[in-house]
């Protein structure tokens, strides 16, 4: 039963991120989402008894719950920009769209995938929904940091897919993915910092001068 609680936690945190108006709440919601993901993975590891999943869960805890959000929050403090996210679509309409996307992934899971195991079906629908919403955040939020968070949310969704469909990827793949994520966050953080010093803003929609 507790796995459903964790899954709902992930979903609710994703909705929080969709309606978040400022950067710090967005990042805190991401931290909480990752925490639920960590708990979910641990519960799977206990029920499945796979030792490698414990290590992966540990990595989630260290990277996605502690290190990355802290790093992002520090960047926000450092570059001193307006903390508002900047919307292409207001939070109410975003939430409505998010609900529609959730329904779409639900439909997809049950009509197309024909998953029999209810628990697996639910978590797959959820994973798909989280991936789509990560993409949604990347598209409809203006500040460059929200693109990074959107990418991280998508990664969480993909991890969830892997873990529910086939009990996680091989450990080495998982490990390298985490490393990639961490490094990409660092690089993107540096980029955001540089963009800010160069243009005095981090509004992605203003960066549209094509080169060449």
């Amino acid at each position: 039963m507790h796995t459903y609680v964790f899954l709902s936690g992930i979903l609710i945190m994703t909705y929080f991120m969709v309606i978040a108006k400022r950067l710090p709440p967005l990042i805190s919601s991401f931290r909480l989402q990752s925490l639920f993901l960590f708990l979910f993975t641990v519960s799977l590891a206990i029920s499945g008894g796979e030792p490698s999943l414990y290590v992966v869960a540990g990595l989630i805890l260290i990277l996605k719950v502690i290190l990355i959000p802290t790093l992002l929050l520090r960047i926000i403090k450092k570059i001193k920009v307006n903390e508002n996210l900047g919307f292409f679509m207001n939070p109410q309409l975003s939430l409505f769209t998010a609900l529609l996307l959730t329904y779409l992934s639900y439909l997809f899971t049950f009509r197309v995938m024909n998953l029999i195991d209810r628990m697996q079906a639910a978590s797959f629908a959820l994973a798909l929904c989280v991936t789509l919403l990560g993409l949604f955040i990347m598209v409809f939020r203006i500040k460059a940091l929200s693109q990074i968070v959107g990418l991280l949310v998508m990664e969480n969704g993909l991890f969830l897919t892997a873990v529910t469909m086939c009990r996680g990827l091989p450990f080495i793949v998982e490990f390298s993915t985490f490393l990639d994520i961490f490094i990409s966050v660092i690089i993107l953080g540096v980029f955001v910092y540089r963009i800010n010093t160069l243009f005095t803003h981090i509004d992605v929609n203003k960066l549209d001068n094509l080169k060449g």
Binding site: L101, V112, V139, F140, I142, Q147, V204, L207, D208, L210
Partner: peptide, 25 residues
């Protein structure tokens, strides 16, 4: 379709995925 807007490029991907999910049936 190439305005240089990063959001729009990601939106293309997003729209494609959603369309694929809808159309896969």
């Amino acid at each position: 379709i190439q305005p240089g807007s990063i959001h729009l490029y990601i939106a293309y991907i997003f729209a494609t995925i959603v369309a694929l999910i809808v159309l896969i049936k």
